[in-house]
Design a protein around this nucleic acid. Structure first.
Lengths: 114, 114
DNA sequence: CAGCATCCTTATCGATACTG
DNA sequence: CAGTATCGATAAGGATGCTG
């Protein structure tokens, strides 16, 4: 169940829902890269868990909009906090990766723990 | 890169590292269900991203311990906030699932519970 | 102890086509 | 528009055996 919210798509969908009600295809465009199949699955899982609310219009023109439930908002806020932090750390992370990927550093006086 | 920290194993590993330095096999026991292969992969990804620090003892008895870096601590804290909230919502979520999974409510007049 | 290499089984995802 | 159904590719994950 944690994976529903922390997983790749779950977190992006919850984040995208932050800005209010949104319809399926708009959401799909917003969450760039998600296929409609996966988006449907993700939304169903989140709805089942009570984090998003599905609101269907049954007369023409018909559409479905999704919103966050109260607990969905809580989760989404915490998620966004995390995502924002991680995005802000991008540069640092990329630098860390280069250090990690580059050839072994020269030996100076410092040693690993003994 | 976000998936490294939000993914199933990444988040659990970061959360497990909250309590301070821990060795590989202890970590493996702590993060219940992770295989050693996946744990090694996860740790490498997190180390590469600069969220965890690997500290290897090169003399006998040899072991490796992992700790959170400063940014790792930040991420871990935010993650733990989320995990704690989600865990606390378990009951609510399970109830929501039962509602979702139960047979469709009658369509005219008689409504399920609303 | 920590971790790599290999094989093999699943789960996940994308593309496509079709329905209410 | 908002999905469902099916198929095939591919990536993730487990089991086992081996190494510094």
């Amino acid at each position: 169940m944690l994976e529903h919210v922390t997983g790749r798509w779950g977190s992006l969908v919850l984040a995208a829902l932050e800005d209010g009600p949104i319809r399926f295809n708009d959401l799909r465009r917003r969450v760039d890269g998600v296929s409609q199949k996966v988006l449907a699955q993700t939304l169903q899982a989140l709805e089942r868990d009570g984090f998003v609310c599905r609101n269907q219009r049954t007369v023409f023109p018909l559409w479905v909009e999704y919103t966050l439930t109260p607990s969905g908002k809580d989760v989404s806020a915490k998620l966004l906090d995390l995502i924002t932090y991680v995005e802000a750390s991008m540069d640092t992370v990329l630098a860390a990766r280069q250090r990690y990927d580059s050839p072994a550093p020269a030996e100076n006086g410092a040693r690993a723990r003994e």
